[in-house]
């Protein structure tokens, strides 16, 4: 069941260019150079209920704009968005009662007061009834282990503790969709794991849909079933995460006994030199659809003597970088 449907979404921003110097400043009072940038340029996608989807894209690519439109905070210049039969920016008040948002960099808690106070405020704002509130609070408190820390003033909490409280707050009203904007930024590895486990658990139990934007590719790899990559306002990749990894490319790192003959290797077909690691070793990229690993090893065996050989998957970041550059 498709819970989010986006069609031909379009958003432009006007920026005014003004030259330097006094004359330019005066001229700019009368006429301004308008620059229109298409932040979101006719995109379509759909998300199923219960998916965990990652949004990637270089800064300024239209990723945060899209998320803002989906969360009802911004309205687009064209296109349609249907989420649970709401149009986010039109039915905003009714719509946002069903979503949760966690901002990695903007806190929704009260700095000088304990998170528990913010939770009760949240209860009032979202008109959550007493019973439901207590149940959810208990459940989330246990899942994220915040029982001890939620009574301490927020400013005394570590970043990891604070993020866990932000999560609790975002989910107290049992949202069906949760938007996470850079949720693990600045967290240490343990904190990140707790958050990731939590998301997976909630996703499994409640079939809550999660939309995650992050620059942390490990987050994306661990959490997301699907990845949408946005670059320059357009979607350049929209498929299962596994597809991003499996595309027949492999890295082969070879260490020779003798010095590497780079020119000879460069001439060989089906090999692409990624990097010369030292005088004796080199990293190559190969396409396993064109040549199987066995054949590749044979090729080298017949040439220079191989001391060591290592085969690995190209890091997902390389793939992402390519998509960003496309």
């Amino acid at each position: 069941m498709k819970i989010i449907r986006v069609n031909k979404l379009r958003k432009e921003f006007k920026s005014y260019e003004r030259g330097e110097g006094f004359t330019e400043a005066v001229l700019s009072l009368f006429k301004r150079n308008v620059k229109i940038s298409k932040a979101v340029n006719d995109i379509d996608f759909a998300i199923e209920k219960g998916e965990v989807v990652g949004f990637l894209g270089p800064n300024g690519a239209g990723k945060s704009t899209t998320i803002k439109i989906l969360s009802g905070v911004m309205h687009p210049d064209g296109g349609s968005v249907n989420i649970m039969n709401y149009t986010p920016w039109i039915d905003r008040r009714k719509y946002v009662a069903n979503i949760g948002v966690v901002f990695g960099q903007k806190s929704q808690l009260f700095w000088d007061l304990p998170p528990i106070d913010a939770f009760y405020m949240h209860k009032s704002i979202f008109s959550i009834d007493e019973k439901s509130f207590k149940t959810e609070l208990d459940k989330l408190t246990k899942l994220l282990s915040i029982k001890e820390i939620m009574k301490k003033p927020t400013r005394q909490l570590s970043l990891g503790e604070r993020m866990r409280c932000e999560f609790v707050m975002a989910m107290l009203h049992k949202p069906k969709i949760v938007f996470l904007d850079e949720p693990t930024i600045g967290l240490d590895i343990f904190a990140k794991e707790i958050i990731r486990k939590f998301i997976k658990k909630i996703n499994n139990k409640e079939k809550t849909t999660f939309i995650v934007t992050s620059h942390d590719l490990e987050d994306i790899e661990h959490l997301c079933d699907r990845i949408i990559v946005i670059n320059e306002g357009r979607i350049v990749f929209n498929d299962k995460t596994t597809k991003l990894k499996v595309n027949n490319k492999k890295y082969v790192t070879i260490k020779f006994y003798d010095k590497v003959n780079l020119t000879k290797i460069k001439k060989m077909k089906n090999f692409k030199v990624v990097k010369k690691l030292s005088d004796y070793s080199v990293r190559l990229e190969i396409d396993t659809s064109k040549m199987s690993l066995n054949e590749i090893i044979k090729v080298f065996d017949n040439g220079q003597k191989v001391e060591d050989i290592e085969i690995s998957n190209p890091p997902i970041s390389e793939i992402i970088k390519k998509l960003y550059r496309a």
Partner: peptide, 18 residues
């Protein structure tokens, strides 16, 4: 200055009241 008005808009209440 802090770009925080979004935080007001994601609450299911009249934004002026919030």
């Amino acid at each position: 200055q802090r770009g925080e008005f979004d935080l007001t808009l994601i609450k299911p209440r009249n934004p002026l009241f919030m």
